[in-house]
């Protein structure tokens, strides 16, 4: 069957008023990604590209790429990028933030990067209330290295480094790190969404947009956790991985806005202390 398919330049013949409903955002480069079939990173990249475009941010953005599957994010998003050592993206972003107050600063990290090797960096960037937007893709596994257990791996989940399933007695419990971060007064916005279905993807996009707006409005640290899948690492078909995501994963990591303290960071007098040693200060 041959169908005429209108390109963006040439709408369908005899249908000059055809309306464009959806097109790939321009900032998402027109090339195939290295991600496996069905991988949620592609969805998060696309949402990010859409939001940046809608907020007119690409020309002002300096982004920090992680180590892990998303290490090549700069091949797909046509914005300025710096590579960070494993886990250090929030520190790298802090350096950018402080010397470029006018830039829009973005980090993109996976769960091994952010919730294991980079815990100190993410906690302290959040504690300082750095005006950065952090995108945290949580698929509960180290995908790039072959599907090893991550700090976010569910109890009982089999991975290449927990071949008998994650046992809490031996390997501890999954970390809800976004909830942990939300405790900190420097965090203006923290939310968790997922790429599991069309509705959730819409909500996730709204969260990413809000996290970007927080930074534009002068707020503090903003983080969006995107629960994602890893069909290959989980040993599932893409469709099975989506079902798993909707079931046990979302159960372990509840969806929704965890904290939204408004654009401008709230005063934190309750955490301050008078300094008798330096009365002049």
């Amino acid at each position: 069957m041959t169908l005429h398919t209108p390109g963006p330049e040439s709408p369908a013949p005899g249908a000059s008023a055809a309306r464009l409903i959806y097109a790939r955002p321009e900032v998402l480069r027109d090339r195939s990604t290295h991600y496996c079939p069905g991988c949620g990173h592609g969805v998060v990249h696309r949402l990010l590209a859409e939001v940046l475009t809608e907020l007119d941010l690409p020309a002002h953005t300096i982004a920090v790429a992680p180590v892990g599957c998303a290490v090549f994010a700069y091949d797909y998003l046509d914005i300025d990028f710096v590579e960070a050592p494993h886990g250090r993206a929030p520190a790298v972003a802090t350096g950018i933030r402080r010397v470029r107050p006018e830039a829009f600063v973005l980090t993109y990290q996976g769960d091994g990067d952010l919730a294991a090797i980079g815990t100190a960096e993410i906690v302290h960037a959040a504690a300082r209330g750095e005006r950065i937007t952090a995108i945290f893709v949580n698929n509960g596994i180290y995908g790039m290295t072959g599907g090893q257990m991550a700090p976010t791996t569910l109890l009982g989940q089999k991975t290449t480094s927990s071949p008998f399933g994650r046992d809490a007695a031996l390997m501890g419990y999954p970390i809800r790190i976004t909830e942990m971060l939300a405790q900190l007064p420097g965090v203006t916005y923290a939310a968790r969404g997922t790429i599991a279905d069309v509705g959730s993807i819409g909500k996730l996009k709204a969260m990413i947009k809000r996290a970007c707006q927080v930074q534009m409005e002068g707020g503090g640290f903003a983080i969006v956790e995107a629960l994602s899948n890893c069909p290959v690492g989980w040993g599932m078909t893409p469709q099975q991985s989506i079902e798993h995501l909707k079931g046990p994963v979302v159960e372990a990591y509840p969806l929704g806005v965890i904290v939204d303290r408004g654009a401008v960071a709230q005063p934190t007098h309750d955490l301050g202390c008078p300094s008798p040693a330096h009365p002049e200060a």
Binding site: V64, A84, P85, R88, A91, V92, A93, G95, I96, R97
Partner: peptide
């Protein structure tokens, strides 16, 4: 680690 990576970013 934090210090040197901040330097990297800046």
């Amino acid at each position: 680690l934090g210090a040197i990576n901040m330097a990297l970013g800046a």
